[in-house]
């Protein structure tokens, strides 16, 4: 147990600040927010992804780890600090941690149902950087006219996959991209153009 990395120093107040940053990101797709209240990243995880887990995941939210993250440091950390059940099947997860190497990237997760579109997964995708990638144009709720996202490391097929996710609306998955201590959200309501 002593090997497990520390969690939030001041859980009530740290998680409140972290959540507000995440909420700001969801309310303004494309906006880059800083998650600085959490501890350093655990194992292969970025600081932002670690903070996101500590803020939103708990024993009520099954979590799926892609092979890159399915390592003892992450598993022990998640179990100890959140109690989240780790699931083997993507479809059973409410949250998932993955890298852009997964192909297809956002397939086979829960998308909810038309009566209950909220029964869907939120995918945390660890990317090399939230800037410097090819420019994507975002339109939809939370964006005044259009926003620009330049997430690095996404596969060429991303726009196509996302368009398919959009056609499922109100069902579909929601994405957050994390790199370092930064996070950007892409809710299912947002249209992406290259």
């Amino acid at each position: 147990m002593s090997d497990i990395a520390l969690g939030l120093a001041d859980p009530a107040h740290d998680s409140q600040k972290l959540f507000r940053a995440v909420l700001d990101a969801f309310a303004h797709p494309g906006r880059i927010v800083a998650l600085t209240q959490g501890p350093a990243g655990v194992g292969p995880l970025s600081r932002a992804a670690t903070a996101f887990l500590l803020t939103l995941v708990d024993r009520d939210t099954p979590l799926w780890l892609s092979p890159d993250f399915d390592v003892p440091a992450v598993r022990d950390f998640v179990r100890f600090h959140t109690g989240a059940p780790l699931v083997a099947r993507e479809a059973d997860a409410l949250f998932a941690l993955l890298t852009p190497r997964r192909a297809p990237l956002i397939d086979s997760f829960a998308i909810g149902t038309d009566p209950y579109p909220d029964r869907s997964a939120t995918l945390v995708i660890e990317v090399p950087a939230l800037t410097g990638g090819p420019a994507l144009t975002l339109k939809g709720p939370g964006i005044e006219s259009e926003a620009r996202a330049c997430v690095a490391g996404l596969p060429a097929s991303f726009a196509e996959e996302w368009a398919a996710n959009r056609t499922l609306f109100p069902c579909g998955v929601d994405l957050v991209f994390t790199a370092g201590s930064e996070l950007m959200a892409l809710p299912r309501s947002i249209a992406v153009e290259i």
Binding site: F19, L23, F26, S120, F169, P170, P187, R188
Partner: peptide, 30 residues
């Protein structure tokens, strides 16, 4: 009582619901 009255687990549950609500504008999240 905890900060802001609610316990942290309840806050997380509500926070997750809020994010879903933002992601699907106008849909009532239970």
């Amino acid at each position: 009582y905890n900060y802001a009255y609610l316990d942290e687990q309840t806050k997380r549950m509500i926070r997750r619901a809020i994010l879903k609500a933002v992601a699907v504008p106008g849909y009532q999240v239970p």
